[in-house]
Computed example of a mutant assay.
Amino acid sequence: MPENIYINSLQNHNSRSTEKDQQKECVNDKRDGVCMVLLSVLLLLSLLANAVLAYLYYTNDTNQLMGCEPVTNNSNLEVNKSSLPCTYKGLPEKWVQDKGRFYVFSNDTMDWDNSRKRCQDLGGDLVIINSSEEQEFLAQQTVISKASVLHWIGLTDRQTEGTWLWVDNTPLNSNLSWWIFPPDNYDTHDPLGEDCAVLNGYLRGEKWGDISCLKKERSICEIPCS
């Protein structure tokens, strides 16, 4: 009789030990599951934090652009890339990307020389208009911006009066010009005359005009996009 009691007690002890081991395994499994969930949440929060930091970096740093970057020379203006709907918040100018280039519409006003220097600092130059499509595109942008003002373009006859050259020294094609009136070199306000061209946003159709290079106007830069 005592032997049977010992055997039963031993069996009960072993059964209880097994149950405790199973309970421990269950607790451990639950802990592992909770840990996996916590790790997943922490990973997700880390990814979100990095995304927010990246967004703030690209929108607050005026030297950075989202989507693509301007190249540092002016030799690739005719690359035919499709338009991208880029918006660049936090920058001092309006940037519009189209066909492998950026068009930068300034918000501040400067004379022609300083406007050109600003464009060169950005990696390009004052805009050269090579087609009616490009002229129409720029005209639409000046309307969209609701800025009925003059914008400098990269056209001047400073070297020889009446001989209009683009900033890359190519002569103006008379078949690709959009003068409101023929340039008249009016010199009443500036003895040097009117040697620099603007896109005139005052008139319907956004034609060109010639004015003194010393006047302070907005500008349109053209910058190749990598």
Rank of each mutant, 00 (worst) to 15 (best):
Q135M: 13
D125T: 10
R204W: 04
L48F: 09
D61I: 10
A147R: 14
K216G: 10
K216T: 14
P183I: 00
S174H: 06
R16V: 10
I211K: 02
Q97I: 00
Q120K: 07
I5D: 14
D210Q: 05
W179T: 09
D113C: 02
N63K: 10
I129W: 05
E194D: 14
A197I: 02
Q120H: 04
L38W: 03
L42Y: 01
T188E: 11
P85F: 09
D61K: 03
I128G: 00
D184R: 08
E206C: 15
E78C: 08
S177Q: 12
L203G: 11
S46F: 07
Q11R: 10
S40C: 04
T72G: 10
I128H: 04
W208Q: 03
D108Y: 03
N80W: 11
E206Q: 13
S226H: 09
C213Q: 00
P171Y: 05
S148G: 10
Y202Q: 09
N130F: 05
P182Q: 00
E134H: 12
D168M: 06
L150R: 15
L65K: 12
L47G: 03
E136Q: 13
Y58E: 05
R158F: 01
P182L: 04
D121I: 03
E133P: 02
Y55M: 11
F181Y: 12
G90P: 05
V143K: 12
I211Q: 00
G162K: 06
N185E: 03
K20G: 00
S46M: 08
L43S: 09
